[in-house]
Design a binder for these strands. Structure first.
Lengths: 219, 219
DNA sequence: CTCCAAGCGGAGAACGATCCTCCGGTTGTC
DNA sequence: GACAACCGGAGGATCGTTCTCCGCTTGGAG
């Protein structure tokens, strides 16, 4: 599991289980309520006392850091699997996108990333590794001709954010998840090259542009 | 302007201007931070003292009610314009969707609707009028054959919610808006009927299903 | 131009939510 | 079976939000 606080003697079995549940609960609650979500609620959702949360993660940013590391690791794994197990570039992209959706990964990262220390080496390298693999998925689909050149890395990333965030309002989680995949299905048909396809307007953001936005936002 | 608090003597010019700015600010802030957003921030964003907000809207729900009425009115107008000024059903749908995006309308409604009094007649009829017009836009595109039958009213509505919400993280508002329209362009290509098109999986939600969700959520 | 009712802004007390520690009790592991 | 590791939850400290009160400003009628 990513983002362990210390690498001392292994945790007792129950403690390790609790830490995992905390991480999962933190991911869900942050996705639903933002980076400032009450820690009490995370603990409750994990089925654990608030003290256990503080024992494992000394403060909010330690917890969020662990959540992000875990998320980045999951995206990276999904991208690597898509690259190695699919032959068609477009199929790999679609597979990656569905997997990213399942991991609720794209929703949590932008919510949390600007709270964390940008100089943190572990974070930077996890980010680099993950983004690099996704870039390769996109590049191979471009090379293939199976993804139009006017659909960029930035589009894939930001579209995943839109699809990953839960819908506001009274939508039960199970339905929400089904709908997200359905909407991805619909969208994917629009990404496919086809004879009468109209090019999208607006900015074609590349990976560097996204990075640039983030650096700009830090004074 | 929709949702006026009272219909007494007309407000002084500056007061009216302030009320409009408050409504716009409330819409934006609620979209960004949810229905519980601090009222101070709304006042600040409107360039107005907090007392002015309370003077015009006695409490949070009065303000939110006005925001929702305004939003519903805008969607209705957009749908009516699309119906009357476009001949092709698909073109009308696309036009409606872009207009709805501009009005940030779909984002605000689900965030706020479950806080308001479901027995409020003005709300109910505005809701009915607005949803009815959008339903007609969808129906005509279906009748046309220009929108596949497996794309439902619920899809259009929930997709608009996804596209309308601002992206989390350091995305400047202007860029965010451009991106939303770009993503709608991409999506729309997937909604268009085409020879090799794959049908989407998942639940086909109709208008009644959405209504049903909301009623379920009220105990 | 004058005047005043209508409107305004912002300070700050009251309130509620969240944080985070402390300690008596429970449980995994050797 | 014993003990170290771990747990839960109560509650004081802290922080953010709400909403009122009052002295100042301003639009617009005459």
């Amino acid at each position: 599991m990513a983002g362990e606080v210390r690498e001392t003697r292994p945790l007792r079995a129950d403690a390790r289980r609790n830490a995992e549940q905390l991480l999962a609960a933190a991911r869900d609650v942050v996705v639903e309520r933002g980076a400032g979500a009450p820690l009490d609620e995370i603990a409750r959702r994990a089925g654990v006392g608030i003290a256990t949360l503080y024992r494992r993660f000394p403060d909010r940013s330690a917890l969020l850091r662990a959540v992000v590391l875990d998320a980045l690791e999951r995206t990276a794994r999904a991208a690597a699997a898509a690259l190695s197990e699919e032959t068609d570039g477009f199929a790999a992209l679609v597979r990656y996108m569905h997997a990213a959706l399942d991991a609720r990964v794209s929703a949590v990262i932008p919510l949390v990333l600007d709270i964390l220390d940008p100089a943190d080496d572990d974070l930077q390298s996890a980010r680099e590794a993950s983004a690099g693999l996704v870039q390769r998925v996109v590049d191979e689909a471009h090379a293939d001709g199976s993804l139009p050149a006017d659909v960029t890395f930035g589009d894939i990333g930001t579209l995943l954010v839109r699809l990953s965030r839960p819908l506001p309002g009274p939508v039960p989680p199970a339905l929400d998840e089904e709908l997200a995949h359905r909407h991805l299905d619909l969208l994917v048909e629009g990404l496919r090259p086809s004879p009468g396809r109209r090019a999208p307007g607006g900015p074609r953001l590349e990976r560097a542009d996204l990075r640039g936005l983030q650096e700009e936002a830090r004074p």
